[in-house]
């Protein structure tokens, strides 16, 4: 694929969501508004073209069954740890014992590492502090939460996302 066709393909990949967002958002389909929508979308593409956005590699998660399965697993983890954290907050003695630790990110891919760090932060009770040299510094609210994360279940699942 030549550079020009790749640029056009990336432009189209951006244009379609933009047009869809405009149509869904306004909910009005009058000629004036549609014209304004086309103008805005083309203007956005032009500005992004001037920013050299289409020359750089665009990160994209491969959307598939595995990712949806991972989201379901993550939601269940969020529910479990939310209940834990809620119980800790409402109990009068406030039984916390914070711990800082480092866990390894098995995947070297930056998108995967960002996914792992964001998943850790998204789960109440654990918080990603820093990503450095394929390792993630994590602050955990309780010893139990830290031990749970140290088992590396989340890391394994993210590594499995890219297996063909």
């Amino acid at each position: 694929m030549s550079t020009a066709t790749r640029t056009v393909a990336r432009m189209l990949a951006l244009l379609i969501p933009l047009v869809a967002a405009w149509l869904l958002w306004s909910g009005l389909y009058k000629p004036l508004l549609l014209g304004l929508g086309v103008f805005s979308c083309v203007l956005t593409i032009y500005i992004k073209y001037r920013m050299d956005y289409f020359q750089t590699e665009v990160f994209a998660l491969q959307f598939g069954r595995r990712l949806v399965a991972y989201w379901f697993w993550l939601s269940w983890e969020v529910v479990k740890s939310s209940l834990d954290v809620a119980r800790i907050i409402v109990s009068p003695s406030l039984p916390i014992s914070p711990r800082v630790m480092t866990i390894k990110a098995s995947s070297k891919n930056p998108v995967d590492q960002a996914t792992l760090a964001n998943s850790i932060t998204l789960t109440p009770g654990t918080l990603a502090l820093d990503v450095y040299n394929n390792e993630i510094a994590v602050h955990a609210l309780t010893e139990a939460g830290a031990d749970e994360l140290a088992k590396g279940e989340m890391d394994r699942r993210i590594l499995a996302l890219r297996e063909k």
């Binding site: 969020v78 529910v79 939310s82 954290v85 809620a86 907050i89 409402v90 406030l94 916390i96 914070p98 932060t121 998204l122 789960t123 109440p124 009770g125 654990t126 918080l127 602050h139 609210l141």
Partner: peptide, 23 residues
Amino acid sequence: GLGALRMPNLYTRMHAASLTDTM
């Protein structure tokens, strides 16, 4: 919100804030 008030330091407060942000 209660956790954000009760927790003793910044990092533990962030856990309470993440509770309201996600769940």
